[in-house]
Every structure is written in C-alpha cells, then in structure tokens.
Computed example of a mutant assay.
Amino acid sequence: MDRLHLMTVYVAVVEAESFAGGARKLHMSPPAVTRAVAALEERLGVKLLNRTTRYVRMTEAGQKYYEDAKLIIALADEADNAALGINAEPRGQLTVTASVLFGRLYVMPGIVEYLRRYPAVEVNALFVDRVVNMLEEGVDVAIRIAELPDSSYRALRVGSVRQVLCASPDYLATHGVPHTPDDLLKHQIILARGLNPNNEMRFLRDGLPRTLKLQPILSVSDNDSAASAAMAGLGITRLLSYQIAEPLQTGKLKIVLSEFESPPVPVHILHREGRHSSAKVRSFVDMTAERLRTELSLN
C-alpha cells in the first residue's frame, strides 16, 4: 500500500481512538482500516497501537510515529495546495480549546469572525475548565492561562491577566477594607479552588514573594460561584481579572490590596505544528493572537 495512505489511516485511527471511528472519518470500511494499520506495523517492524475491545492507545513508538506522520501529512497537503495555487485558503476541520468563560468571552467572537472569513473550515470548539491533552483529544489550538512547562508545542504569548482580590461594597462597608495581606486573617475568605487549590495565597510585598495561609469560610469548585458569593456580600475572594470584568465595571465588586498582587498570569496560544503548519492552523493562530492582544482586559 502507499506509504502516505497508511500514515493517513494511522493518524485517523489515533485521533478517533478507534478503528471504527477512523474508518468513518476516512469513509473506509473498518476491515480495510484494520488491514492498513497492520500493514504499517508489519512494514515498520514495530507495534504502534495497543488494542482492546473498547479503545486503542499508542505505544511509545506509536506516539512518536504519530507526531512525525502528522507533520509529513501536513507537508504533503501544503505541497498539493501550493501546486494547485490555493495554499493560502484554509480548509478542513479545526479543533480549538479554552476554559469555559474565557472561551465564551474572548475566543468565540474570534471563531465567528474566522468562519465568516474562511467558510471552508469547520471549527470544533472545546470549552472546558480542565487542561486538555491536545494529542489525545485531537486538539489543534489551545488557549492557556498559565505558566507553561517546557514542551514540544509551539507557544505564543498574547497577554496576561491579573490575579485580583475583590469584595462587594456592602461587605467592605461592614467589615472594613484590608490594607495589608495580614489583614485578611480577620476577614471572611471565599476560595475558588481552580485558582487556589489549597488554603494559601501568594502576594508580593516590597518586591518579595510572601505566602499567607488562610481559613476560608467557603470553598467552591468553580469561579462563577465564588464571584456570586462575593457579590452577595459574603466575603473576599481572589479571581482572574477577566472573570469579574463585568461586576467590576458595574460596581458590584471592588478590588482590594492591588499593590500586593502576585505577578500577572500569562495567556498563551498553543499549537502542535511547527513552521510548516497548515493554513487553517496558521491563519487561526494569527487572527486569534491579533484579537487577544487588543483586548483591554489582557493587561
């Protein structure tokens, strides 16, 4: 069989996590897909996939081969498009991920604009409040709000968001405004566990980092609930600036201890492809980077 065809079948099976899913994606029969992967493994002399009745998983060799095969297929597609004179026209399916609120507020408007400009692309938007494994879930582009560990992915920094302490005007009128981090020990604290996985908060004082252990009156698993409790006057919470942009603008929440804030959290666009990235990935990353860099909340 043609080597590029075998690579294409293998990549489809990996991304669908099943032979049947890969077959549907390629409009092939499941037996034909199974034969193609078996022929590829026989040709290479290595096992690429571990199979069970429920799913397939890559071996270590299979993961490396998947990454290389994706690049080779992208290069082949780029060569075909260049020969046809349409290499600048994005097309195909693009999967994008971001956290739920950030995706809704900042990424979705860009997706709408992108699809209007490039109607030959089909976008799958995966907005979830967890770290998505881009390789396992077939994600092309991720927007991450975090310091990133070293990886083989390409990361483009587009801005940052502040970690802010806030409370309602009613709460501050009743309990007083804290003037130093130590004052928080006398206040009612609401912890959003996504940003504060333990009872510690970090601050900068005289340019030096300081950690304060707090006893919360309420701990919640999601940011919206923490913001709602703070707006109801229950206490002081810490969230990312974009998560409370609206209540800050309307005066429902006020920032406190801004002079002691921890360093801003960077926002990155992450993608799996290198300089030979496909037109759909390249164009989406470029548009999204330009859009996010102009957002007033990213500072």
Score class of each variant (00 low, 15 high):
residue 102 F to W: 00
residue 102 F to D: 01
residue 102 F to I: 01
residue 102 F to N: 00
residue 102 F to Q: 01
residue 103 G to N: 08
residue 104 R to S: 03
residue 104 R to A: 11
residue 104 R to K: 12
residue 105 L to D: 08
residue 105 L to R: 08
residue 106 Y to G: 02
residue 106 Y to E: 04
residue 106 Y to L: 13
residue 107 V to G: 09
residue 107 V to D: 10
residue 107 V to K: 09
residue 107 V to Q: 06
residue 108 M to D: 11
residue 108 M to G: 07
residue 108 M to H: 14
residue 108 M to T: 15
residue 109 P to S: 07
residue 110 G to Y: 00
residue 110 G to H: 01
residue 110 G to S: 14
residue 110 G to Q: 12
residue 111 I to E: 04
residue 111 I to G: 03
residue 111 I to W: 01
residue 112 V to I: 13
residue 112 V to A: 08
residue 112 V to T: 13
residue 113 E to L: 02
residue 114 Y to I: 13
residue 114 Y to E: 08
residue 114 Y to T: 13
residue 115 L to H: 09
residue 115 L to F: 06
residue 116 R to G: 13
residue 116 R to S: 11
residue 117 R to L: 11
residue 117 R to V: 06
residue 118 Y to W: 14
residue 120 A to W: 03
residue 121 V to I: 04
residue 122 E to Q: 14
residue 122 E to V: 15
residue 122 E to N: 12
residue 122 E to A: 14
residue 125 A to F: 11
residue 126 L to W: 00
residue 126 L to Y: 10
residue 126 L to I: 13
residue 126 L to H: 04
residue 126 L to A: 09
residue 126 L to M: 15
residue 127 F to L: 12
residue 127 F to D: 02
residue 127 F to T: 03
residue 127 F to H: 01
residue 128 V to Y: 06
residue 128 V to A: 13
residue 128 V to D: 08
residue 129 D to A: 05
residue 130 R to I: 02
residue 131 V to Y: 10
residue 131 V to A: 11
residue 131 V to Q: 14
residue 131 V to N: 10
residue 132 V to D: 02
residue 132 V to W: 02
residue 132 V to G: 01
residue 133 N to E: 11
residue 133 N to L: 03
